[in-house]
Amino acid sequence: MNKRSKSTQLFYIVVTVLFLAFFLFSSISLIFLVFLGAFVISLFELTTKRQFLKLQTILPTSKIRSLAMGLVEISGSTSCNELIQPRIGDKKCIAYHYQVHKKVKDADGHYSSQLIEEDKKIAPFSIKDKTGSVDVSTKHLDFLWLPEERSYSIGNLYYTQTILMPDVQVLLIGKAVNLNGRIMIEKDSINGVFNLTRVSSINKWTYYKPLLNSLYLFLGLICLVTIFIVMADVNVNDNLVIYHF
């Protein structure tokens, strides 16, 4: 079981316990505790995506010709000798991630999406920059923000597919290893990161992240002030509203 599924399980356990406690003891503080618990766990949840986004701001980009062994960040265009056939469409690609979701209705009449089929295939490929080329291991490689290609729906079934095409500028973080004189990038077991994304996507992320941080801070402050106002004792005397904190 990976780090993500462990922490997600922990998150669900804590939220369930707190909600049960709320219904048992009917305390408003417990509602707050539920949100606090959820927030704290989400802060510590170590997803590979979060780790990748954090590392890409810290790691300098290496030239492929002079790669040092260990954790590296490389940038270049993708190339592949034997492209594969995706599940949707006939345009051959380097990798695809195909998913089928089913829209299901529960007893209360609420709709939710359920994953009923998943298929992910990656052909052996390499990344090249101006100085050289390096092979990328296909094992445990995660993609981030790849474009969706020809997704469609029939009835209550949704068919989605993200693909990686050749000659796309990408950014990869992984571990450089020397396998019998051949340099290869594979998953870094210490940081648990081996992600690839398009350079254009990561540029957008870098551009909008500070704005997103400001939004989170602003929303956090609004929530805090709202909680204070809602939970404060209020008296109305002669058209005068008095809050007691």
Binding site: I28, S29, F32, L33, L36, V40, L43, I58, L224, F228, M231, A232, D233, H244, F245
Partner: peptide, 27 residues
């Protein structure tokens, strides 16, 4: 407002501050 709630708020702010500085340190 309950004392417990105020304690929560204080603990929460302390926690966020610690987490913030731990992140900077690690970085």
């Amino acid at each position: 407002m309950t004392d417990l709630f105020i304690i929560f708020i204080i603990v929460f702010i302390i926690f966020l501050t610690c987490k913030f500085f731990i992140n900077i340190y690690n970085r």
